[in-house]
Amino acid sequence: SEEKKKAKERLERLGASSELARELLDRANGNAEKAERLLRKLL
């Protein structure tokens, strides 16, 4: 979806690899905010 694509791009801008961004979104069930929080914990 367009929303998921935007979320993935945002995670990548924050420093996630394409693969990591995809994994985070999967774990967050597509929830962009939750995926971002997970990423911030990792960085």
Rank of each mutant, 00 (worst) to 15 (best):
L39D: 00
S1R: 11
K8E: 13
K41N: 11
K8N: 07
E33H: 10
N29K: 10
E3S: 11
K4I: 14
R40M: 13
A7Y: 09
K4A: 14
A7M: 08
K4F: 15
R40C: 14
L38V: 05
K6P: 06
S18V: 07
G30R: 01
S1Y: 13
L43G: 03
E3C: 13
S17D: 06
L25E: 01
R37C: 13
E33F: 12
K41Y: 13
L42Q: 04
E9G: 06
A21K: 01
L24Y: 03
L39H: 00
K5A: 11
E12M: 15
S1I: 12
E33Y: 12
E19W: 10
D26Q: 13
E23P: 00
E3H: 10
L11R: 01
G15I: 03
R40W: 13
L24G: 00
G15L: 05
S18I: 06
L42P: 01
E3D: 12
A32V: 15
S18E: 11
A21C: 03
L14I: 06
A32G: 07
K34P: 01
A32F: 15
A21S: 04
L42A: 05
A28Q: 02
N29S: 08
K6H: 10
G30N: 07
D26V: 11
L43M: 10
E2D: 13
S17Y: 04
E3W: 10
D26H: 11
K5I: 12
R13T: 07
R37P: 00
E12F: 05
K41G: 07
L38T: 04
L11W: 04
L25W: 05
R13H: 08
D26E: 14
N29Q: 10
S1N: 12
A16W: 03
K34F: 14
L11Q: 00
L39F: 08
K4D: 14
L38E: 08
D26N: 12
L39E: 00
E9M: 08
A35C: 05
K8A: 12
A28N: 04
R27V: 08
L42R: 05
K4M: 15
R27L: 14
L39K: 01
S17V: 03
E36M: 14
E3V: 10
L11V: 01
E33P: 05
G15Y: 03
E12N: 04
G15Q: 01
E2N: 11
A35N: 01
A7E: 04
E2Q: 11
K6D: 09
E9I: 09
A21Y: 05
S17N: 06
N31G: 02
R27A: 10
G30M: 06
G15F: 05
E2C: 13
K8R: 15
L25I: 06
N29P: 01
L42F: 09
K34W: 15
L14N: 02
A35V: 02
E33Q: 13
K5N: 13
L24S: 01
E36S: 05
L39R: 02
E19A: 12
K4E: 14
R37A: 14
E19Y: 05
E3P: 08
